[in-house]
Amino acid sequence: MLEKLIARSLSGFIHLLTGSRAFWSEALAPAPRVYYGNHSSHGDFVLIWSALPAALRKQARPVAAAEYWRRGALRRYLIRRVFHGVLIEREAEHRNEDPIALMAAAIESGSALILFPEGTRNMGDGLLPFKSGLYHLANQCPKLELVPVWLENIKRVMPKGRLIPLPLLCTAHFGAPLRLAEGEDRHAFLERARDALLALAPEAA
């Protein structure tokens, strides 16, 4: 109950601050799905999460870096109880759990994931190269749909390392879902997914 209220207030706050608007290339029904977006701010997943229609929002869970979100009681509470995040360990050498297995288990249990395949917040323009997790996940879950989501301007609202958010207008552009093709290799697939996301960016990027 309290968690729902916090989630609602956070997304309401982001909406009020950024006047966020969502553009869809097609209407989507709940399905095994990953929303993957460009990553530049901690507000990113809240923006995607709150842009989703209620039916899709219920099944959506953000994939977040365990190293960051396990530090401090407030972060742990927010990511676990409020947003039901799937925590993965980014650094392979200090890993106890396989991130792909964790994400695949969440998909199989009926969740949709919000994922940022750049792996870190991007300070520049455009997109960093994608990590291969997106491919491995699509490989493990054959029916998986991947929906690119380009987030515009949120980088300026909450720049990395800053505390006070700025009121600037943000938009989320949802593209058409794509799937791993028969026999498509890792490199080609990641390139295709990355191009599909970049294609949603307005002219400048």
Binding site: G19, M123, N153, R156, P159, L166, P167, L168, L169, A204
Partner: peptide, 12 residues
């Protein structure tokens, strides 16, 4: 002001 600054790119 939010509309104005949004459309005129500033830097970090």
């Amino acid at each position: 002001l939010r509309e104005f600054i949004t459309l005129l790119p500033t830097r970090s």
